[in-house]
Amino acid sequence: MRIIFLGPPGAGKGTQAARIVAKHGIPQLSTGDMLRAAVAAETPIGVKAKAVMDAGGLVSDEIVIGIVADRIDEPDAKKGFILDGFPRTLAQAEALDAMLASKHLELDTVLELKVDQTKLVDRIVKRAEEARAAGQPVRKDDDPEVFKTRLEAYNRDTAVVSPYYAARGQVIEIDGMQTVDEVTAAIEKALAGH
């Protein structure tokens, strides 16, 4: 089962991906984690990425796709994987398709958590307040201004990825405003055919 998770920050992708991992035994692939692992392991692509990062640059789509390509060849990803937070742009989606095709693989589905973005900001503010009240550190991403900036970046750059996959009939929309368990049930229903 090869899945892409789409949705704005704070929609619950990480929570739901963890549940899919637990139930189906496929890894959740975070490009950030994979990038750090490739650099630490000093893989050929990791060495390239480190050089770019050390120079203060952003890692190119080519390097990110290379890291994803290496990672999905690992044994735990043979049954499938969840891409969360990638692809972020249309160019990355196209490059991902080309890379998967070169490996004779296809995506099974694209799950998109649909949320009311105004309520999403309220949800993040509440989460930060609850963390403060419990004496816990507030996640940097839960600062309302930081979150709004991330949301704007998502709407500007990443929201175009959904229509790309929708045009191919691969997107299944899930109401992300339901309770966590209701969202999980809707996802499981959507995945039942795979």
Rank of each mutant, 00 (worst) to 15 (best):
M1F: 10
F5C: 00
G7H: 03
P8H: 04
G12M: 07
G12S: 08
K13I: 06
K13E: 04
K13Q: 05
G14T: 02
A17L: 03
A17H: 00
A18R: 13
A18H: 09
I20D: 06
A22L: 12
K23V: 11
H24A: 10
H24L: 14
G25F: 00
I26K: 03
Q28H: 13
Q28C: 03
T31C: 01
T31I: 04
T31K: 04
M34Q: 09
R36L: 09
V39Y: 00
V39N: 01
A40W: 05
A40Q: 14
A40C: 09
E42W: 03
T43I: 08
P44I: 06
P44R: 11
I45C: 05
V47D: 09
K48F: 02
A49E: 08
A49L: 09
A49V: 11
A49G: 10
K50Q: 13
A51K: 15
V52R: 12
V52E: 15
L58E: 12
V59H: 00
E62I: 09
E62G: 09
V64C: 06
I67Q: 08
I67K: 06
I67W: 02
V68A: 05
I72Y: 06
E74Q: 15
E74T: 14
G80P: 01
G80V: 03
G80R: 06
I82K: 00
D84I: 04
T89I: 06
A93S: 09
L96R: 00
L96I: 06
L96P: 01
D97A: 04
A98S: 13
A98D: 13
A98M: 10
M99H: 05
M99N: 05
S102Y: 07
K103C: 03
E106S: 13
E106C: 01
D108W: 01
D108Y: 07
D108Q: 06
L111Y: 00
E112W: 02
E112T: 09
E112I: 03
L113I: 00
Q117A: 08
L120P: 01
V121L: 12
D122R: 12
D122K: 13
I124K: 03
V125R: 08
K126G: 01
A128N: 10
E129V: 05
R132L: 13
A133N: 13
A133K: 15
A133R: 14
G135S: 11
P137K: 10
P137S: 11
R139E: 11
K140S: 12
D142E: 08
D143P: 07
D143Y: 07
P144E: 10
E145D: 14
E145P: 02
K148V: 11
K148Y: 12
R150C: 09
L151K: 08
A153C: 01
Y154D: 04
R156W: 04
R156L: 12
D157H: 10
V160D: 02
V161P: 03
P163N: 04
P163G: 08
Y164H: 15
Y164L: 10
Y164C: 08
Y165M: 02
A166K: 11
A167T: 06
A167K: 14
A167V: 03
G169W: 07
G169T: 11
I172P: 01
E173S: 11
E173Q: 13
D175M: 06
M177N: 15
V180Y: 08
E182D: 15
E182H: 05
V183S: 02
V183W: 05
V183N: 00
T184H: 14
A185Y: 09
A185P: 11
A185V: 11
A186V: 08
E188L: 11
K189T: 14
K189V: 11
A190L: 05
A192Q: 12
A192L: 10
G193V: 13
H194I: 13
